[in-house]
Design a protein around this nucleic acid. Structure first.
Lengths: 351, 351
DNA sequence: TGACAACATTGGAACGTTCCAATTATTAAC
DNA sequence: GTTAATAATTGGAACGTTCCAATGTTGTCA
């Protein structure tokens, strides 16, 4: 009972039909008589038959393996865990199963796991790329014709589909909200200024500043590491300029928390003496003191959407690259000093 | 370049050897001449050959598929995401790849994903079982001889290996710590009293109470839903008894947060007027106000350990069931009213 | 020169499935 | 009662690899 696999031939013998008929039953073909189908399925159950997809894949085109690859850059980050759960939902209900691997931002690991997944015959890949991933890194898998959907971070120049959140819209909404509260000196704090995400968020900030009649002032833009420590640093520098800001749009929530720390260290109360807005809506944003006003991106919905897009491409048989920008919404809490003050600026999430 | 797979035969032709030799190279056999090996690998690189593990698995014993299954009950919970990352680390460095699926506590989904993974030929399974999983649910996969390691929650009666955290030791340490701070009336709050985990934690609590000369008093044990709302409820009932407790060991961190809420609602300040200890050390425990004193279980280390155990069993070829209890440690913060007061009670994590 | 290792290489069968073309059984039509 | 059409079933080749037994190639020694 332990060593011997039950195969389609064993079933055939026991049911008194040929292996071809069993195969037909397995695929739910309408060609086979209802009586035989019933007998065959009964025998399968009785003998404890387990379908061997490996063997099936060998014969069929590899795009029918019913395996997806999911590669994320940091699974310890709640954002990506949620994303993975979203993917998992639609993957499961489509009868697929997913390889999931973590790269910890390492390009080498990323290449390795993608290669390994290819050997196992994935029919598509969802990738949240490690930092500094280039189109060249994706070349092999793209050339093989396996559909790829890149999420969260774009890979410029790669001929793959992408699904990123609307960074510009996000910071635009943040600035608009702060402006509606009367702020005129609004800083943009944190983030490495050599990344595409930074560029997008900064652009949304600048557009909104212009749209609300504030003249551009680059001394208000203070990059830093996209971390809590970076936030402390950035607010320190921002408060050292001539005409001090009264509010800040931060690169992400981690920076925003750091900004709050830095403000308190200078005797200022975030949400009261200075308005702070984050980006991401991490779990702590809700429970922190003060609760953080931020841009929410609903990673789980993004995961679902990415999986749907990928499955569509797999079924279509050809990878027509498609770019989707997923909308975001402003969540007003207390760190901006106006809890629930301006619900009109909410941008609804798409999907 | 898109449709045609490069096979071992193509390599053989191009390199002027037989497919058998190419296969030998693939397996790193010492039989093959260094010159030929070099030529073959060169040709493989040149033609962009991708090893087809599916075909290989067909020929080999299925325990060499280099695929592991990982099934968790709730990936949105940071605890399990960390666990998965731990598993991923050792899985990757062993050259394996993992299927990862989420069951959302659904037994049906759990059965489905395990069946699906079996069809894909996993050589082992790490399972964090959905609530109410029984030995019968695991029967098919256990009978097939595939090694299974159950983590976090035990499945009584199943002949599988298990790795759970030391629940008894955890609550024992909590009580000891509270006793060292002078508390005599210590309650045990929250948790469904029909689960094995509840039983374990309660037992540790009782043992410690006895060990520190406090007589058993079941009115101090107040079960509830293992959630924030359950905690509010439990502390309400606990404060209604004759001789009120002055401290509580909570079933988990969620309950502990609820207990803090409930205390404040009654005008009591947690950490000052009443000592609270949690269990799990979720991320928010550090940042909450007051920061939660709790029992930390290091899920990532648990994941690594589970994966190592499973790989060991796969390599051994036979599944000798093995039970490991992973030690935990008390993290003293401010909710117990004694930040850093008693470092001597720390229990070091194993591994 | 022949015998014997040691080393390299090889053809073919096997793994469990799908797919195709071919076959048989059943019914319908004239 | 023959033919045509439909329905149900079937054997065998194929998928890309591994493994086994067999073969070829050297070199060494008597």
């Amino acid at each position: 009972m332990k060593n011997e696999r039950v195969t389609v031939i064993d079933i055939a013998k026991a049911a008194g039909v040929s292996k071809s008929t069993v195969s037909l039953v397995l695929q739910g073909s309408p060609l086979v008589n209802d009586g035989t189908r019933a007998k065959v399925t009964a025998v399968m159950r009785e003998l404890g038959y387990v379908y061997n997809r490996g063997a099936a894949n060998l014969r069929q085109s590899s795009s029918k393996s019913k395996i997806l690859g999911v590669v994320v850059n940091d699974l310890t980050n709640g954002f990506f865990a949620e994303l993975a759960v979203g993917v998992d939902m639609v993957v499961q209900s489509a009868g697929f199963v997913q390889f999931l691997s973590n790269t910890s931002e390492s390009l080498d690991r990323q290449s390795e796991v993608i290669a390994s997944m290819r050997e196992h015959g994935i029919s598509g890949l969802i990738l949240s790329p490690a930092r500094a991933t280039t189109a060249a890194d994706l070349k092999p898998i793209v050339a093989s014709g396996i559909p790829v959907v890149v999420v969260v971070r774009n890979v410029p120049g790669a001929r793959v589909s992408s699904l990123v959140s609307d960074n510009q819209q996000g910071t635009f909404a943040s600035v608009r909200h702060l402006a509606s509260l009367g702020h005129r000196r609004i800083a943009f704090l944190g983030g490495f200024n050599d990344t595409a995400v930074f560029e997008d968020r900064l652009q949304g900030y600048r557009a909104a500043m212009a749209a609300h009649g504030m003249k551009p002032d680059d001394s208000l833009v203070v990059p830093s590491a996209p971390s809590r420590a970076g936030g402390v640093d950035a607010i320190g520098r921002a408060l050292a300029i001539d005409v001090k800001p009264t509010a800040a749009v931060c690169f992400n929530d981690a920076v925003a928390f750091g900004v709050c720390d830095g403000l308190r260290a200078k005797g200022l109360e975030p949400g009261k003496d200075f308005a702070v807005v984050g980006f991401d809506d991490v779990i702590e944003a809700k429970t922190a003191v003060p609760a953080l006003t931020t841009i929410s991106v609903d990673p789980q919905a993004m995961g679902r959407r990415a999986a749907q897009l990928l499955l569509k491409q797999i079924n279509a048989g050809k990878a027509e690259a498609e770019s989707i920008i997923s909308s975001v919404r402003l969540v007003v809490r207390s760190s901006c000093g106006a809890e629930g003050a301006d619900p009109s600026v909410k941008v609804e999430t798409g999907l």
